[in-house]
Design a binder for these strands. Structure first.
Lengths: 211, 211
DNA sequence: TAATATAATGTCACTGAGTGACAAAAGTCA
DNA sequence: TGACTTTTGTCACTCAGTGACATTATATTA
C-alpha cells in the first residue's frame, strides 16, 4: 500500500501564488523537466524500456531525486488524471444543491469532460502508452474510479432527500463508466472531436433511468 | 507489458481430464499449494509484507519456480477473477441469439454473478486485500474491464441488427459497472447475501434505457 | 528394465524499482 | 557573513522478475 491520496508537489501549489522564492521555482522547473523528459522517452523507447535512470540522466539528476518528485514511475503518467478527478470532487462540493441525482451527475461529469478536453495532447500520449502497457491501463482505471467514494459522499451530503447510499454508488459508477468510454471514444477520434458532446450523447440515455 | 491474455496452467486443464500422469498431478498440487500458502501469508502478514521468498519457503520450492506457476505475485490473486470473466465471454458466444442487447447483457451478467457467487470465501479474502492494497484494487478493476472488448465483439456478432459499436461498448461498460458495484455491495453484506439478486436490482433500472 | 527423450526444478547472476540513512550543497534570512 | 533549513547526492539495501544453464524427475520406447 502506497501513497493513496498523497498529493504530488504540483498539487500543493496554491492557485494564485505570490512571487515564489528561488527554491520553489527550481522545484517546479525540475518537476516539469522530469515530466517532459519522461514523456519524451516513453514515446521514443516505450514505457517499460525506459528506466528511471534514463529519465534522471536526461535531466541530470540522481535517480534518488526522481523519487522525491514522483512516488513511482507510474505517477508521472497518472498525475494529471488524478488531479482532474480531484477537481471534480471539489466542483461537486461547491456546486449549488442539485435538483436530482441525475442533474448533479450530469453537471459534474460534464465539468470533468470539459477539464479533460483541455488536456487532449497529453491524454492522447498517455492513453497510447496505456494501450501498450496493462499496468498503466490498470492504473488509469483505478485513478478514475478512486474518486467514486468521495463523489458519493459529496452527492449524498447535498441531496436533501435521504437517497439510498447503494443506489447513489451505483449511479456514480454508471456515470463514471460513461465518462470512461467517452474518453476512449474521443481519443480514438480526430483532434477536433468533442468530448463533452460524446459524453452527453451517452449520458442522455442514462437520465431516463428511474431514480 | 506482460502476459496480456496468457493463461495460467490451471486454465489449460481440459474440463474432463482423463487419468492424468504423475507430472500433471504434481503440477496441480504445486499450484494449489502455492495459492494456499500465498493466501494464508497475505492474510497473516499482509500482501506487501509477504515476499515471493516467503511463499516459496512455505511450500519448499525455489522462488524461481514460483514464477513458473504465476507470472507475478499479483496473479495469484487475480487468477479466479480473470477466468470467471473468460467464462462470461464463452457463455455469450455459446448463448442463443439474444432478443435485444439488454436481454443479452442481463443474461451474461446474471451468469457472471452466479459464477462469482460460488467463490464467495475466496473473493472476500481477495477483496479485503484489495481494500488495503491499491495496486491490487487496480488490478481487479482491470481484470473485470479487460473482458469488455471481447464481450462487445461477441454481442455485436450475435446481434442481427447492425448495432452501433460505440453504443454497445457503452452498454457493456454500464453493465460492467453494475456488476462491479454489485460485487462490492455483496461482499460488504453478510455471508448469506445474494449477489444475483443485488445485481438484478441494479440491472432492472438499466433495462428501461432507450436503445 | 535400461536407455533415452522431455519436462520440471534449482542455481546463479543480473536488471530495475523503490527506500532509508546520512553527508554535502544550495537557498533563506537575520 | 554566518546560522538555519531544505534539497540533493551517495551508498547500501530489499524485493520482483528474468535469462541461461545444469540437475533431477517423469515419460517413452526398445
Amino acid at each position: 500500500m502506497k501513497e493513496e491520496f498523497e498529493m504530488n508537489p504540483k498539487e500543493n501549489i496554491h492557485p494564485i501564488e505570490a512571487p515564489a522564492g528561488l527554491r520553489e521555482r527550481k522545484k517546479r522547473l525540475a518537476q516539469a523537466a522530469i515530466e517532459e523528459a519522461a514523456l519524451r522517452l516513453f514515446q521514443q523507447k516505450g514505457y517499460e524500456q525506459t528506466s528511471i535512470q534514463d529519465i534522471a540522466d536526461a535531466v541530470t539528476m540522481s535517480s534518488r531525486t526522481f523519487f522525491r518528485y514522483y512516488a513511482s514511475k507510474e505517477e508521472v503518467l497518472s498525475g494529471p488524471i488524478r488531479s482532474t478527478q480531484l477537481d471534480g470532487i471539489r466542483y461537486l462540493l461547491e456546486a449549488e444543491p442539485p435538483a436530482s441525482p441525475h442533474a448533479a451527475l450530469q453537471s459534474v461529469f460534464g465539468y470533468l469532460a470539459s477539464q479533460y478536453e483541455k488536456q487532449r495532447p497529453g491524454l492522447v500520449l498517455r492513453y497510447r502508452i496505456a494501450g501498450q502497457t496493462p499496468s498503466i491501463a490498470s492504473l488509469f482505471l483505478y485513478t478514475l474510479m478512486e474518486a467514486e467514494p468521495a463523489l458519493c459522499d459529496a452527492l449524498c451530503s447535498r441531496l436533501e432527500t435521504g437517497a439510498d447510499r447503494d443506489e447513489v454508488r451505483f449511479l456514480v459508477a454508471v456515470y463514471m463508466a460513461a465518462l470512461r468510454v467517452s474518453i476512449e471514444e474521443w481519443l480514438e477520434q480526430g483532434d477536433d472531436a468533442d468530448l463533452v458532446n460524446v459524453l452527453h450523447r451517452h449520458m442522455d440515455r442514462l437520465s431516463s433511468m428511474p431514480d
